[in-house]
Every structure is written in C-alpha cells, then in structure tokens.
C-alpha cells in the first residue's frame, strides 16, 4: 500500500474529478432504475435494494471525496481553493440526485405505476431526455467550455420550465387526486434532478461565487 508513494500519481484534483464523474454515473443508475419502477412496470422490490445500495455508495463517495478535498488543501495549500470549494458544492448536488432517485422509488413502493396510463409515452420521453442529460453532464464535467455549459444550461432551463408548467397544471387540475398527485410529485422530483444537473454543469463552468445561481442571482438552481 505504501509503495503507492513511489508510483507516479495524477494530480489529486484529477483523481477527485474522475471519482465525481463516477458518482454521477451511479446517480444516473439510481435515476434509471427508480423511474423504471414507476414507468415501466418493473417490480419496485426488485430494484429497491440496488437503488439503496447505490445511494449508500454515492453517500460514501461524497464523504470520501470531502476528506480527499481536505487532504488536497492540506498538502497543496490554498492555490486551488476555488476548485476545492466548487467540488464540495458539486458532490453535494450529485448526492442530492441520489436522494431524489430514492424519493422516486418511494413513489413506486407506495404503489404508483404509470405504465398503463395514456400519458406514458410523454413521461417516458422526459425520462429519456433526463437520463441522457446525465451522460452529457459527465462529458461536460470532464471537458467543457463556458459556451457548452451555457447551451446545456439553456436546455435544462427549458425542460425545467416545461416541467414546472406541468406541476402547476396538476396543482389546479380537476382530475382525481390518484391521477394528479403522483404525476405532480414525480414531476417535482424530476425538476429537482434537472436543476441539480444544471447546477453540476454550471458549477464546472461558472465562477464559484455565482454557482447555484444564474441570471445575476434571479434563479436559484438549488431549487
């Protein structure tokens, strides 16, 4: 173990970056499984263990990365303090996505299944878009420019607004509660996931002071 001292290591922040991206992949895995439990008729019991284990894995990764960030500052000093603080925000957002996937699983465990509903294609389409945004976010975390991040953020904002409109519609809907409430709750979790993904990408591109906020502070990405 101590022989690792003699091996050439990549920069500590590069290691942390790779592990942050891997955390995002875990979060996507949880999101896909939990959404499938609600939308594809998958048995919630069959995915619950996987989602909870993945969430524990994400939480553990967050704690480990926090420790590694402290080690980075202790060893390298404060030269990269901006990046270190950005990472603490980023990994928190990814950890939240893991929790939100668990919340979606809770819906399925409460018996919500929308597989045979008339709006299933629309729901599946939104799920597909969000799932692909995880992959994009991971790519952008590894290599991005402010323009690419902005473009991603614009699409995320558009999706977020469209989800918000749906939530508003369900809030004022005259449909029975068993129809409107599960959809409103599901959309609410999706909205939060999209916000956190946008936060992850803008967190990579924006100055630390502005992270979590956009439009000069008008929009709070933490939702």
């Amino acid at each position: 173990m101590v022989m690792s001292f003699f091996k050439k290591s990549e920069s500590g922040l590069d290691t942390i970056a790779h592990r942050t991206i891997s955390m995002l992949a875990d979060a996507r895995h949880s999101f896909d499984l939990a959404s499938a439990a609600v939308l594809s008729g998958a048995n919630p019991e069959s995915v619950a263990q996987d989602i909870r284990t993945t969430d524990e894995h994400i939480n553990q990764a967050e704690q480990t990365l926090r420790g590694e960030l402290v080690t980075h500052v202790a060893v390298h000093g404060t030269t990269e303090i901006g990046s270190v603080l950005s990472y603490t925000l980023l990994i928190k957002k990814i950890e939240r996505i893991g929790d939100q996937a668990k919340n979606i699983l809770d819906l399925a465990e409460e018996g919500v299944s929308l597989v045979d509903e008339e709006d299933i294609s629309e729901l599946n389409e939104i799920r597909r878009i969000i799932s692909s945004m995880f992959a994009e976010a991971a790519d952008l975390m590894a290599e991005t420019t402010t323009e690419q991040a902005r473009e991603f953020y614009d699409r995320a904002t558009e999706l977020r607004h469209s989800i918000e409109n749906k939530i508003r519609d369900y809030m004022h809907s005259e449909e029975p509660g068993y129809h409107a409430v599960p959809r409103a709750v599901l959309y609410r979790y999706w909205k939060r996931i999209v916000s956190n993904l946008a936060g992850v990408v803008t967190g990579v591109a924006e100055p630390l002071q502005k992270q979590g906020y956009i439009d000069d502070g008008e929009t709070d990405l933490d939702d």
């Binding site: 173990m1 001292f5 990549e10 080690t71 390298h76």
Partner: peptide, 27 residues
C-alpha cells in the same frame, strides 16, 4: 505533493499502524 496526497488518501483511509509510520518516514 501528488504522491503525498495519493498515499495519504490510500493509507490513512484504510487504517494506520506500521504502514502509516512508513508513510510518515517516506514523506
């Protein structure tokens, strides 16, 4: 610095004892 950081993360994350002592020596 990068070696120190990587070794500290590896060694201190998994325990201490003689391995940590050797790490202190090497650093």
């Amino acid at each position: 610095a990068d070696r120190i950081e990587a070794s500290l993360n590896k060694v201190l994350g998994t325990g201490a004892g003689m391995v940590a002592m050797v790490l202190g020596l090497l650093i």
